[in-house]
Nucleic acid binder design. Structure first.
Length: 258
DNA sequence: CTGGGGAAGGGGCCC
DNA sequence: AGGGCCCCTTCCCCA
């Protein structure tokens, strides 16, 4: 399965684990890459730009009209954006939402607590500020009214031009490894990849001195030093160092006993 | 089969 | 608004 189509799933795992342990780790950003490697590993910014390696695929807002030739509404919106640099008018979007035109059930937001008096009429999520609600709607729930930017290469749609441009990079892959030619959508992905060539591992575990090229991998490794792992089976209370291991445990059928 | 390491991708936040 | 960075998550592979 192509990883580019991984879908973020929500599990009952705390979004804010205790990273105090991780924060105490020694993180050494070595100048190794720049000083000792015989050729430029991390491309200069101009190299990272799409133009150097994929001139035919350079993203340019001027090309947007080509992407949306069948969507005059989009090009109109984009043209307007380019000319005047206006942000989306969230006020108008919001007022339309609050007009009761949707088929969603009436929002109880107005009678909610002061702290959460702005409620999304699409998903009922509450916010303490209008700005928070507006941002939420723009990002997630205004599918009926928000501007939609469609990708030319796939069927994905985004609510903002910036999000679309970011996504398009996953198609154009403007960041190319000078060593092996592999291409990536973002410079920091390339940077991480380059470490696989150089062997640089700037993230060290203070427990065992093992080093990692990727911070997330260090974080996963730290779990192996813990008696009580972060991911727990609700049935048998057994804990796992990785969510994937917990999923595997659940999929294979938890017996309910440890 | 399980656990762990390596590599990679996307979303979101901050500047 | 856009880029950089961080975090989370997943898949693959191997011991």
């Amino acid at each position: 399965m192509p990883r580019s189509f991984l879908v973020k799933k929500h599990f009952s795992v705390s979004k804010k684990p205790n990273y105090s342990e991780l924060e105490s780790q020694t993180v050494i950003v070595s100048p190794y890459l720049y000083e000792t490697y015989p050729f430029p590993i991390i491309p200069q910014p101009e190299i990272l730009s799409s133009g150097t390696y994929c001139p035919s695929l350079v993203w340019d807002t001027g090309l947007l009209s080509n992407f949306f030739t069948s969507e005059p509404e989009y090009t109109k919106a984009i043209a307007s954006s380019n000319e005047e640099s206006k942000p989306l008018d969230l006020t108008s979007l919001s007022s339309e939402d609050d007009d009761g035109k949707t088929s969603d059930p009436p929002s109880p937001a107005l009678s909610a607590t002061e702290a959460e008096k702005f409620q999304c009429n699409q998903c009922s999520k509450s916010y303490s500020t209008f700005a928070g609600l507006s941002k939420h709607k723009q990002l997630h729930c205004d599918s009926q009214t928000r501007k939609s930017f469609s990708c030319k290469y796939c069927e994905k749609e985004y609510v903002s031009l910036g999000a679309l441009k970011m996504h398009i990079r996953s198609h154009t892959l403007p960041c190319v490894c000078k060593i092996c030619g592999k291409a990536f959508s973002r410079p920091w992905l390339l940077q991480g990849h380059v470490r696989t060539h150089t062997g640089e591992k700037p993230f060290s575990c203070t427990h065992c001195n093992r080093a990692f090229a990727d911070r997330s991998n260090l974080r996963a490794h730290l779990q192996t030093h813990s008696d009580v792992k972060k991911y727990q089976c609700k049935t048998c209370s057994r804990t796992f160092s990785r969510m994937s291991l917990l999923h595997k445990h659940e999929e294979t059928g938890c017996s309910g006993t440890r």
